[in-house]
């Protein structure tokens, strides 16, 4: 299949969902020979090419291991499809650092119709950045948001590692286990940035889920974060709370300055790319993270990621 970046971008702009596998194969490619194609792809889905921000809703779903993220996605995918919305899922799996390989298990939890081309699921190993994003996730989300109605990124983490997905997603949902005090602790102590939506899973377990939901709401109120919705869901039959969750995600997105969030995402992405490519030494050459951020802020707001990366690299020289 072609990995001509410009052509793939054209297919995405035309709403061709079947381009998704090839898009992922390209953005996941680490060889420098493919870099120009990836750049061409990203340019082709940048605001300048689209005439505005990519229309898809990029949703981050994050939470501790085993909390029920993938099962929740199964219920969400079903509900989104029932509403006629196309969905791409980017599942980022923490990989075994020791062997270098990874068992990618999220897909197994998501039930979908294999004949339905409006559902796309790609699992990717997080590589060495445990709990963070895979190196390709930012580019994949940016590209797929041009064609899919919803792009979901599943990552593992609670605490600081959410910030990576928050840099990419329009809306971040943090999923917590009923009865576990982790999220509460993190929110109170300020370790965890307040997410856009909080989800308590396994509501079928009854009281404990409701209590967790109440405690979280109270904690948010005490921080003056009244607006943050806390939704209790059960992802297994009888499914409950999913429509409410979708409404909360949609509402957040409706009130969002998408352009500002995407601008921040592109700048953060460029910074991450440079850091990955040239290391901390590379960043130091442009005055560290702060310096790089100042430099990026001077670039055009519509600038695509490859242009931003080039600007940083030029400044470092």
């Amino acid at each position: 299949m072609s990995d001509d970046g410009a052509a793939l971008a054209g297919r995405l702009r035309g709403g061709d969902l079947t381009a998704a596998p090839a898009v992922l194969n390209l953005v996941e490619n680490r060889s420098s020979a493919r870099r120009p194609e990836i750049d061409a792809l990203l340019r082709g889905v940048a605001p300048a090419a689209l005439g505005g921000e990519a229309p898809g809703h990029v949703v981050g779903v994050t939470g501790p291991p085993g909390v029920g993220k993938s099962t929740l996605l199964s219920a969400l995918v079903a509900a989104w499809r029932a509403a006629g919305r196309s969905v791409a899922v980017l599942a980022v799996d923490p990989s075994s650092k020791r062997s270098g390989g990874a068992l990618l298990g999220d897909r197994a939890r998501i039930v979908y119709d294999p004949e339905d081309t409006a559902v796309f699921i790609r699992s990717t190993a997080a590589g060495s950045r445990l709990g963070g994003l895979a190196p390709s996730t930012r580019a994949a989300a940016a590209a797929l948001a041009a064609a899919f109605d919803v792009v979901v990124i599943e990552t593992v983490g609670v605490g600081q590692s959410e910030t990576e997905v928050a840099e990419v997603a329009d809306t971040v949902a943090v999923v917590v286990q009923p009865g576990s005090g982790d999220a509460l602790q993190f929110i109170k102590s300020g370790i965890m940035e307040v997410p856009d939506v909080l989800v308590v899973t396994k509501a079928d377990l009854g009281q404990v889920a409701l209590r967790t939901r109440r405690d979280l709401s109270a904690a948010l109120r005490s921080l003056g974060e009244r607006g943050t919705p806390v939704v209790a869901v059960s992802s297994i039959a009888p499914v409950q709370g999913v429509d409410e969750l979708i409404a909360a995600l949609d509402e957040h997105r409706a009130g969002l300055d998408v352009a500002a969030r995407r601008l921040a995402a592109r700048r953060a992405g460029a910074l991450a790319d440079v850091a990955a490519e040239h290391g901390e030494a590379g960043l130091r050459a442009v005055g560290g993270r702060r310096g790089a951020e100042r430099l990026l802020a001077r670039e055009d707001e519509g600038a695509d990621v490859p242009t931003l990366v080039a600007a940083l690299e030029a400044a470092a020289r």
Binding site: G101, A102, L103, L104, R107, A108, T124
Partner: peptide
């Protein structure tokens, strides 16, 4: 996985 592959099962 132990041999270093990414595995979907």
């Amino acid at each position: 996985r132990d041999a270093g592959m990414d595995v979907v099962y």
